[in-house]
Design a protein around this nucleic acid. Sequence first.
DNA 1: CTTGAAAATAGTAATCATTACTGTTTTTAT
DNA 2: ATAAAAACAGTAATGATTACTATTTTCAAG
Lengths: 129, 129
Amino acid sequence: MATLKYSRQRELIKDFLMTRKDHPTADIVYRNVRKQNPSISLGTVYRNLTLLADIGEVSRLNVGDGVDHFDADTSPHYHFVCTECGSVTDLEMDSIENILETARANFEGHIAGHVTHFYGTCSNCTHAS
Amino acid sequence: MATLKYSRQRELIKDFLMTRKDHPTADIVYRNVRKQNPSISLGTVYRNLTLLADIGEVSRLNVGDGVDHFDADTSPHYHFVCTECGSVTDLEMDSIENILETARANFEGHIAGHVTHFYGTCSNCTHAS
DNA sequence: CTTGAAAATAGTAATCATTACTGTTTTTAT
DNA sequence: ATAAAAACAGTAATGATTACTATTTTCAAG
């Protein structure tokens, strides 16, 4: 039930997200998609981002800044958050999925996954003094 | 400047938090502290939790459920979030701080720390079918 | 022990991200 | 072509948190 129907708005949102390697918030998506479709509503952006996240076509990131970020790259990777400028970027690094074994070692219950992000000062902000 | 002055309310909040090993939200702190001081206001609870977090006497946890949790135990440790019941508990496990080295390996910038929490089904919810 | 400036409070209003609602428009299977 | 299901635009509502304000506490200095 609830068969998915085509929506131009959803396509625009997904397309925009794929052009970005930073991780925009719903509001940033909204402001950009409006350039192609000035009458799109913020609610539509939210609804579609949630829908896309639910069906696994995008992922929703919570990095503790009070706003959700969205990423069209759903492959497993890690993120860095700059505490100076607030930017959220991908981190090229080896897998740390072994931490799941560490966590499972003496836990009564089922550990399905983990949420990890790193924070500090990005190279831009480090050099900007 | 801004010398800290004693406050009975702040003491009640801190004391309550120390009695709990789960990680209550501001609202839960509020509802409990009211038992000792029925006239305390929610704003006071928020302000003091923020203040205590700022001076490092408690830590603020963001586990992605849209509400901040607070922990009187500021020593480094990890948390587990049950996706069934929403409970947030401590995880007895070895250090995974080595992931910082992994992350720093080829990153231009300064990685100061990481935020990690695990999720899944707690033992209660696993057994409850 | 007073006292007054700084800090904190209670209560309430405001903010901000997000979700819900509603009447209208699109999509698409038949 | 058509009509039920989805989606939409626009707007109202929600919920956590912060800001504001007049009043009360704290506490160092006289």
